[in-house]
Design a protein around this nucleic acid. Structure first.
Lengths: 221, 221
DNA sequence: GTCTATACCCTGATAGAC
DNA sequence: GTCTATCAGGGTATAGAC
């Protein structure tokens, strides 16, 4: 087990650049230059660029709980507050970057149309780990989740809202779009706290009839 | 005013390819080949690739209502059902592509980290037009939106959920993640319909035992 | 407006000495 | 493991005749 310093330096540098500029826009040369490493060394450790990306995703995954949850929720006791503290951290990142911020994993997931399976699996693993963090908070919280709402699905919904909110804030260059999404989520949570209704959820299935239509037509946004 | 056929052909071809393969992965050569047009013609109409993209975004925008709302909601009277019919259409696209589907605008918005302003503005304009469609449905619907919920923000929230849901379904290659997001959204709507504020809840004659619960998770702004 | 040919750059990746 | 030099290919964009 060789704890190569060069290897680590490459991964950390790539992690930073992929996050700042995206995967496509970051060339191998960029990584080499910033890490002050030569081409030969990189290809000694990694067969190709996508293997470097895979290593970056593994690094994200290993540190996700520590990086995602702990800093923003330090000192907070209420698990629900922790969830919104995590979201608040994304908000701060948006502010600090004039709404250029991208969530590292989400933007990679959408930038790479057809990643090789090794990469795709790691992206999914990261999203799952993110959701785990939220799910734990929900479990520890005193929020009485109505029987008809699945807790894990609700945790996934938090991720959904975060990613969608960041995307809009970024596109409009206005954090208000993120704030609006979070506010709706808060309101939803407030509704849940007040109590849901089984009767109302019965219609919540995706109606089969929507699938009926002919294939092919294009869809906007 | 020259209604150039070649120009239109280029835009439509680029629209299709950008959507299928993304902007980066689509080369000018790809567009030229598929449209059976020569390089000189393209650069006669467009100074560069990003101008072609801008034209594509304008085309999306012009047809958004027709392409987004009308096909899936044909025959539906209830505006709320129309909203979920639109979402159902995205679901169908996911199914038909084995969850490779990307929403055209959303994925462009995230693929292009730093688009020139002309492109960025058009992306925003498209998202706004999408939201307008949903907003109109909400306005026409009989859904009683509680006073503390802004209607336009709720429409934006639908977009947020759609984009976030598509992203997760795509990454996990499993439409269940999209379904879960939509189900949560439905549930939220059901909560709103029941009355998101105490006043409305009382009007809806919700038994006191449900209302009783303290707004404990009143996750403050 | 359309055609062919091509300039020129940057990319990921390799070769082979040390 | 690290270094320098370099390849082959594909990218956008241009030139200039027709």
């Amino acid at each position: 087990m060789e704890l190569s310093n060069t290897r680590t330096k490459l991964i950390r540098t790539a992690m930073l650049l992929f996050w700042e500029n995206g995967y496509h826009a970051t060339s191998i040369a960029d990584v080499l230059k910033k890490a002050k490493v030569n081409s030969g060394s990189l290809y000694h450790f990694f067969p190709g660029k996508s293997d470097l990306l895979a290593a970056v995703l593994d690094l994200y995954h290993d540190g996700i709980r520590q990086m995602l949850l702990e800093p923003p929720s330090a000192g907070l006791a209420d698990p629900l507050q922790k969830i919104f503290a995590v979201l608040g951290r994304y908000r701060r990142s948006l502010l600090e970057t004039d709404c250029f911020y991208c969530s590292p994993i989400g933007s990679l997931a959408l930038e790479l149309r057809d990643p090789d399976e090794r990469v795709r699996v790691r992206l999914a693993k990261n999203l799952r780990a993110w959701t785990d963090v939220i799910d734990d908070c929900l479990q520890q919280s005193k929020l009485r989740i109505p029987a008809e709402v699945n807790r894990r699905e609700l945790a996934q919904f938090v991720l959904t809202v975060m990613e969608g909110g960041v995307m809009q804030a970024r596109t409009f260059r206005d954090v208000a779009y993120f704030d609006g999404a979070v506010r709706q989520l808060r309101h939803y949570f407030a509704c849940l706290a007040r109590g849901g209704s089984k009767r109302l959820m019965r219609r919540a299935r995706i109606p089969a009839r929507i699938v009926r239509k002919k294939a092919k037509s294009r869809i906007a946004p």
